[in-house]
């Protein structure tokens, strides 16, 4: 039991999440249960509106559920205040967004430095660590350029570098390949898998893109605000409705 508990990176139990007024309520999550293990890359899939992004936001601590418990790397999030949640995200989470969210007026390296500077690291240290990870994602020489001068794939590489530069235990990826073509998407997922593969790290990817399912260790399928099933082999999924 203790061994199993140690392997769990993320656990959400009985999570309810509603939006809107009591008269006009939209149920996003209903008694949702979810588990992700340390060292794995798990994908959350399902049709639009099934609650994937809401569950991701709850796990990331940017939304607080109305009911249920959320535990990330042993830390209960459901009882934390905004300040503690912000601090938790700062230390434990890395984000890769669908639309990259790279700040266009900053250089590539400055974008990558953001999480370290938010942590209060000195500028020079942040600069050196960012340069090292930019090299790892294959963009050496592009540090001083602006993100807009890069291709979509290159921009997503910068976003991955930014998500991992502060070595967070949990990497959250929201539709990381939806803005990329098949080959570029494949390369990006290889990069995510290679760079994030660590026994102490967990990667949660929300996606519609069945072309990247092969990169997952497990896939959790969502339906109507809850996890309907979890599979180890993507072939077991019926992707027609995803």
């Amino acid at each position: 039991m203790s061994t199993l508990a140690n392997t769990i990176a993320v656990r959400a139990s009985g999570v309810d999440m509603f939006f809107g007024t009591p008269d006009n309520q939209v149920v996003a999550l209903k008694q949702a249960d979810f588990e992700a293990r340390r060292g794995e890359l798990i994908m959350l899939v399902g049709p639009s509106g099934c609650g994937k992004t809401t569950l991701l936001s709850v796990i990331a601590g940017t939304l607080t559920p109305q009911a249920g418990t959320v535990e990330v790397f042993g830390q209960r999030l459901d009882g934390l205040g905004q300040e503690a949640l912000t601090s938790f995200r700062r230390q434990h989470l890395g984000f890769v967004f669908q639309s990259f969210n790279l700040i266009p007026t900053l250089s590539v390296i400055e974008n990558v430095m953001v999480p370290l500077l938010i942590q209060g690291r000195p500028y020079d240290e942040a600069h050196d660590r960012s340069a090292a990870i930019i090299e790892k994602v294959g963009l050496k020489g592009r540090e001083e350029g602006r993100p807009n001068a890069l291709s979509g794939g290159q921009q997503q590489r910068v976003a991955i570098a930014r998500a991992l530069v502060h070595e967070p235990p949990l990497l959250i990826c929201d539709e990381p390949t939806s803005a990329l073509d098949k080959d570029t998407g494949g390369h990006i997922m290889e990069l995510v898998r290679d760079l994030s593969r660590s026994p102490e790290r967990c990667v949660v990817v929300v996606t519609h893109d069945h072309r990247i399912f092969r990169f997952a260790d497990r896939i959790a399928e969502m339906e109507d605000g809850r996890i309907s099933r979890v599979v180890d082999d993507p072939k077991l999924l019926d992707t027609a409705h995803l």
């Binding site: 912000t86 639309s99 700040i103 942590q119």
Partner: peptide
């Protein structure tokens, strides 16, 4: 124009004070 970037910075763990 920078709102979504500020939102991203918030998500990454920057408090409103910063």
């Amino acid at each position: 124009e920078n709102l979504k970037y500020f939102a991203a910075i918030k998500a990454m763990g920057a408090g409103m004070g910063v």
